[in-house]
């Protein structure tokens, strides 16, 4: 898969913003999906860091807010598809938690687009690459987070 951010031609004089993104991926599906993306040699944007959690339902508003506090420009929470959850109802819990997170992020004045909830299964390596690419594009458009003290720009 062709990357959108990495292969874009550089414009002279204008430096392109490179987002820092934190992706919380559940151990059973999304993290394995990211692994599949790696073994399938899917080409996708490198501007994210994965944090493995046992379940997407474990990702509390506090964890997402901490990422923003430490300067993340966007946060992705990813888990199993409904019905596939290793803990049966963990991803339903993730939706509940994510609703609260959304409210807090909005009240803080950050754009809704800075957080995203996705379902990626262990077999969907391509989809993982797609989701990351889309999200990186979205955050690049939004620009640096107001809480990011040192936004990175392309050389």
């Amino acid at each position: 898969m062709a990357t959108k951010t990495a292969t874009l031609p550089k414009k002279k004089g204008k430096k392109k913003f490179v987002p820092s993104i934190v992706a919380f991926a559940c151990n059973w599906c999304s993290y394995a999906g990211a692994d599949t993306a790696g073994t399938n040699r899917v080409q996708y944007s490198p501007h994210f860091r994965v944090i493995r959690t046992m379940c997407s339902g474990r990702v509390t508003p506090g964890m997402v807010l901490k990422a923003f506090k430490l300067g993340a420009d966007g946060v992705l929470v990813s888990g199993c598809h409904f019905g596939d959850c290793h803990y049966i109802f963990g991803n339903y819990k993730a939706v509940e938690q994510f609703d609260k997170t959304k409210g807090l992020v909005r009240t803080l004045g950050l754009e809704d687009g800075r957080i995203r909830l996705e379902w990626v299964s262990a077999a969907e390596g391509d989809r993982w690459g797609q989701v990351i690419d889309e999200f990186v594009d979205q955050i690049t458009k939004l620009g640096p987070s107001p809480l990011n003290p040192q936004p990175k720009f392309e050389e």
Binding site: G62, K66, F68, T107, L108, G109, L147
Partner: peptide, 26 residues
């Protein structure tokens, strides 16, 4: 051991940022 995953403590610290424009008057 903060309750609510420390969400409220993070909010408190974040509001100190002068660049943040909160939407809190809804």
């Amino acid at each position: 051991k903060p309750t609510h995953g420390g969400a409220l403590h993070h909010v408190m610290e974040m509001t100190a940022s002068p660049t943040l424009k909160q939407k809190r008057t809804d």
